[in-house]
Simulated assay, not measured.
Amino acid sequence: MDIYLDSDAAPVKETVTRLAQAHGIKLYMVASYLTELHSDYATIIHVDPSKEAADLEIANRIRPGDVALTADLGLSALLLARGAYVLNFRGDAITDANIMSGLAVRHANKKRRRQGIYAHNPARSADDAYKFEQALDELLSMLQGRTL
């Protein structure tokens, strides 16, 4: 099992690095080469700055049972189809049971933006940070307890 972090605008880099290291799990941070990343633990993968380059890199590398961390629902759908476990940066598990409703909301919001109507996404809070850390730690502990 490996962890892939969609790192371009990820607010969880330090938390993910700390937990990956504590659990002894390989961490890959994937981002545009325009994003400055440094880590003594993670393997950093820089890709070109085109819109979907990081997503495609993650989708091509992910294997069943790997963990992916992203805020991108389109990427989440691809990764679920590849057998990955997916968490967003608020600590919500993205699953086969909820991905379609998330994609529907994303589509509706995109249509509204084209009409000049913008939805307000609340800023990530301290509670979200705590929830993310707890969810990732629990997921990694659960997966390490499995016999594969």
Score class of each variant (00 low, 15 high):
133 E>L: 00
96 D>A: 01
123 A>P: 04
63 R>L: 10
130 Y>D: 14
133 E>V: 00
88 N>W: 02
52 E>W: 07
101 S>W: 03
56 L>R: 14
81 A>K: 10
107 H>Q: 09
98 N>A: 13
92 D>N: 00
124 R>C: 05
73 L>D: 11
61 R>D: 01
102 G>N: 15
98 N>Y: 12
51 K>M: 09
128 D>R: 01
96 D>S: 05
76 S>H: 10
126 A>W: 00
126 A>P: 00
109 N>K: 06
118 Y>H: 15
118 Y>R: 09
56 L>Q: 03
74 G>R: 08
85 Y>W: 12
92 D>I: 04
105 V>R: 15
82 R>T: 03
48 D>S: 15
53 A>H: 07
98 N>F: 08
130 Y>Q: 14
79 L>P: 07
106 R>C: 12
133 E>I: 01
113 R>V: 11
49 P>H: 10
100 M>G: 10
86 V>N: 02
75 L>V: 06
50 S>G: 13
100 M>L: 00
72 D>W: 07
51 K>Q: 11
71 A>M: 10
112 R>M: 14
109 N>M: 13
116 G>A: 12
115 Q>D: 02
108 A>T: 13
131 K>E: 05
48 D>L: 15
114 R>D: 07
91 G>E: 06
74 G>Q: 03
90 R>C: 06
78 L>A: 04
72 D>T: 08
94 I>V: 15
59 A>Y: 05
74 G>W: 08
73 L>Q: 11
132 F>T: 05
78 L>N: 08
51 K>V: 11
120 H>Y: 15
96 D>M: 01
123 A>S: 05
123 A>W: 07
84 A>G: 01
107 H>D: 10
120 H>A: 14
87 L>S: 03
53 A>E: 04
79 L>D: 04
54 A>T: 08
65 G>F: 11
61 R>H: 09
99 I>C: 02
127 D>L: 04
81 A>R: 15
121 N>W: 09
73 L>H: 14
113 R>K: 14
122 P>G: 07
131 K>R: 13
85 Y>I: 07
65 G>C: 05
66 D>H: 14
104 A>P: 04
51 K>T: 00
63 R>T: 11
101 S>Y: 00
66 D>T: 11
125 S>V: 09
134 Q>G: 01
60 N>Q: 14
129 A>I: 03
117 I>A: 12
73 L>E: 10
109 N>F: 06
50 S>V: 10
109 N>Q: 15
78 L>S: 13
89 F>R: 06
108 A>I: 12
121 N>C: 07
50 S>A: 15
71 A>G: 04
87 L>W: 03
97 A>I: 03
